[in-house]
């Protein structure tokens, strides 16, 4: 059993007085593809945002690649030291957002090369070569010089995936990456992710409402409700034979809404 790539130990997260995550523990192995499902407000997106250091936690500890991301020690750091620590930790983590969040004033190529050049000291020419390779992989090489405003939602999201990959993270976070897309554009993004899962050994955490995609893509599915893990297991078991009432209810609602499992 290899040591886990991502480890949450008894994590508590509050928004004011409202508990978003309660005593949450989970661990993700290197190379594992984990899908997080649940109703909105269940805390699944918060898990990704905490890993990306976009949110802080109020209790517990988190390790990435064996190193503490949040722990009692890091909580005691001065703001400056803490930023230095997080800066170091973020090199392992990449994230793709629901709303793409491309930089509108830069073309696609520049969006992809910016961070490697600025944060990893990659030479301009090397960064461009890597970016073109990645854009090729997501089928966006022909749009390298387009501005985000000129792209369709699916194209924007594929460019955003290339941008996140350019930093070569060990852990990739996908936060409802198809939710903002028109239905006919969903598949082109999912195809890129399937390819990514096959061709790389990155650890991936995926928040999604696309249940059939989660079933095909994930090694393990985690069902969250009210900030707690209700049930987890291989996708076949969770989707076909859920044990918990709340999981059954959630999946029934999904089916009733006309979405396939």
């Amino acid at each position: 059993m290899p040591s886990p790539m991502v480890q949450f130990n008894n994590v508590h997260k509050l928004y004011g007085a409202h508990a978003v995550l309660t005593d949450l523990s989970l661990s993700v192995s290197p190379g594992e593809k984990l899908a997080l499902i649940g109703a909105s407000g269940s805390g699944k997106t918060t898990i990704l945002r905490i890993l990306m250091t976009l949110e802080t936690i109020q209790g517990g500890s988190i390790f990435v690649g064996g190193q503490p991301l949040w722990s009692p020690e890091t909580a005691g750091l001065s703001p400056r030291r803490r930023e230095m620590h997080l800066h170091k930790m973020r090199t392992n983590i990449g994230m793709v957002f629901q709303q793409f969040n491309l930089f509108p004033h830069m073309n696609v190529l520049r969006n992809v090369t910016l961070a490697p050049i600025l944060t990893q000291g990659v030479k301009e020419a090397d960064a461009r070569a890597l970016a073109m390779e990645l854009l090729e992989m997501v089928g966006m090489a022909h749009k390298a010089h387009a501005l985000p405003a000129e792209l369709s939602g699916g194209q924007k999201q594929r460019a955003a995936i290339a941008r996140a990959l350019a930093l070569k993270p060990k852990v990739m976070l996908f936060d409802e990456v198809t939710s903002a897309l028109d239905p006919e554009l969903v598949e082109e993004v999912l195809n890129v992710m399937r390819k990514l899962a096959l061709e790389t050994d990155m650890t991936m955490l995926l928040v999604t409402h696309e249940m059939s995609f989660a079933r095909d893509f994930a090694d393990r599915v985690l069902f969250l409700d009210g900030g707690r893990i209700v049930e987890e297991g291989p996708p076949g078991e969770i989707f076909r034979n859920p044990q918990q009432e709340r999981t059954k209810l959630f999946l029934r609602k999904i089916v009733a809404a006309g979405l396939s499992l």
């Binding site: 990306m52 976009l54 930023e83 800066h87 973020r90 090199t91 990449g94 957002f97 944060t119 996140a164």
Partner: peptide, 14 residues
């Protein structure tokens, strides 16, 4: 706010 979050995700300094 999302622009700031994308910057953090790409690990850009302040």
């Amino acid at each position: 706010r999302e622009q700031l979050e994308a910057c953090i995700a790409l690990n850009l300094s302040r």
